[in-house]
């Protein structure tokens, strides 16, 4: 039978739910709500393939009617422009601040993840591939 389930209710990945266990690169286990900026930086330093990049929020276009937002970032030292479409409650990790989303009330309601409002100018943690020789 063809699936006619509405596709208008996408779900967030399970690892953003409060209490989810996250393994850092050194093997340490932490709850998602306890992660610090240093955890990401140190994990990336250990990683042989991934490096942390700074992604500055340049623009946020969103509406509560669509449940989606388009977030435009300026990524890395070359300030490459990257846009991503995410659910309003999708959390990004802001340097020195923690989890932030376009709609922190929804994030807290759906995930119980403490969250602040993502704003233009925030610098988020993102990943790129290390240059492999």
């Amino acid at each position: 039978a063809p699936s006619s389930a509405p596709s208008s209710a996408p779900s967030l990945p399970p690892y953003f739910i409060k209490g989810s266990i996250i393994q850092l690169a050194d093997g340490e286990l932490k709850r998602v709500e306890d992660l610090k900026t240093e955890d990401f930086i140190q994990s990336a330093e250990i990683s042989s393939e991934l490096k942390i990049d700074s992604s500055t929020v340049e623009r946020i276009d969103g509406s509560h009617t669509s449940n989606f937002a388009i977030v435009q970032f300026s990524v890395g030292e070359h300030r490459a422009q990257v846009s991503v479409e995410v659910l309003l409650e999708y959390p990004f990790f802001v340097f020195g601040q923690g989890w932030s989303s376009c709609c922190p009330d929804r994030t807290t309601q759906l995930l119980e993840l403490p969250c602040t409002k993502l704003s233009v100018g925030d610098v988020c943690i993102s990943l790129t591939l290390k240059n492999l020789r």
Partner: peptide, 25 residues
């Protein structure tokens, strides 16, 4: 009988969006 539930463990990098800047050269 209560079976122990395995708790999922997620790798740290799954939490971070992978934003690969385009290389101009």
């Amino acid at each position: 009988n209560v079976e122990p539930r395995s708790v999922p463990v997620f790798p740290w990098h799954s939490l971070v969006p992978f934003l690969a800047p385009t290389q101009s050269d």
